[in-house]
Design a protein around this nucleic acid. Structure first.
Length: 154
DNA sequence: GCCAACGTTGGC
DNA sequence: GCCAACGTTGGC
């Protein structure tokens, strides 16, 4: 059992969209470090969903990994924005996992507040210029955020 | 919308 | 294998 944080731009795909669909293949990851994290995910792992490129970026709710990593089909589709001509069916370069909606926080745990939590002092999440869209969350980070939303979780 | 920070690409 | 140029991310 491990914990992760996944960023999304709500304008493209929000936590509400995930809630509406129930479950979604998390495609389009095109960064090797993020892909390697995808590959180490297991069904049952917890996920914080983070909204980026908004007025108040932060953790907005929770999801769960419901599949292990498998090839991202968009890499093979020339019409896809995520097409990768350097990838092939027998040697796929990019993977995805399926993600299921779990809950929405009544209140966003903002990046600003995360910066003030000792638990997140060493997290790449709060480092300037960080561009990792998937990153591991420690047990203490997970528990701490949960403790802040315990009475506010929907 | 701007732009700093970063990862990737490709010429050499 | 270096590194400039480029494209993208994401806070602001």
């Amino acid at each position: 059992m491990a914990y992760w944080l996944m960023k999304t731009e709500p304008e493209a795909f929000s936590l509400d969209d995930l809630q509406a669909r129930g479950q979604e293949p998390w495609d389009g990851i095109r960064n090797y470090q993020a892909r390697n994290f995808l590959r180490s995910m297991q069904p049952g792992d917890g996920i914080f969903i983070y909204h980026s490129r908004v007025a108040v970026p932060g953790i907005v709710g929770m999801a769960e990994v419901v599949s292990s990593a498998h090839p991202d089909p968009t890499q093979f589709d020339p019409r896809s924005h995520y097409y990768d001509s350097g990838s092939s069916l027998d040697k796929p370069r990019w993977d995805l996992v399926d993600v299921a909606y779990r809950s929405s926080f009544t209140q966003c745990i903002s990046l600003d507040s995360l910066r003030n939590m000792p638990e997140f002092a060493d997290s790449p999440l709060v480092r300037k210029g960080n561009r990792l869209s998937i990153l591991p969350i420690t047990e203490s980070q997970w528990q701490h955020v949960l403790s802040l939303v315990d009475d506010g979780r929907q």
